[in-house]
Amino acid sequence: MLAKRIIPCLDVKDGRVVKGIHFCELRDAGDPVEQARVYDAEGADELVFLDITASHERRDIVADMVRRVADEISIPFTVGGGLRTVEDIRAILMAGADKVSINTAAVLRPELITEAARRFGSQCIVVAIDAKRVTERDLQPSRPGRAEGLPPVTWEVYTHGGRTPTGRDAVAWAQEAEARGAGEILLTSMDCDGTQDGYDLELTRAVASAVSIPVIASGGAGHPEHFYQVLTEGLASAALAASLFHYRQLRIADLKAYLAARGVPIRQTI
């Protein structure tokens, strides 16, 4: 049976991990390879590297980091952040990443999903969606999308790292991404992110029911129970977390033992 995946997410800047494991036994806490090795050994099923580099030389730096990780690590990993063109995507995949995650660029130009999926295959194109529940205040006519008379939204898609509302509905956008060839959806609840109060089960379930590609849930993990909920009730294929793992509040091996004991299909290593 297909196992549910547990995925730590690492923030990298200029090829160095800036938000990763706080672990005194690490020789170099900023080294992506060293960080990846620890998670690999602990039973992570995949890794996500989110690049927050702002410099112009970003592509070479990121490609070099990807190459070093790919040479040493034998679990799949996704690289996201700032990828705008098919050429950006190609450079990351050719350096050895298994998948890329695209967010803002896909919203601005949805054809990018189609082109990338056709060229590299759906299995390596992850569309990341940052979604926020719409409140009364958000429904004012001056908001993006309202004026154009777009249908009402329950969860709104945000771009540019959660700064820019788009007026798009997250469920409808996930469906469009799938139709354009996305292989997975990485769904982050902006409402839950950072709270450690649990994943947004309603959002995750709404998106996962509306598409037939895997959905990776993100935002809000604080307790093993939260993973259980989102992987069962939330219909997620995978659950992503960052600080919970980085600060060693929860070890992946312990989480997997917990989930396996509760009957969730989880990969055991040999």
């Binding site: 292989g183 029911s209 294929s237």
Partner: peptide, 12 residues
Amino acid sequence: SPLRVPHIGWNQ
């Protein structure tokens, strides 16, 4: 059934 394609992940 809600089987998802692509089949992505760890399987036996």
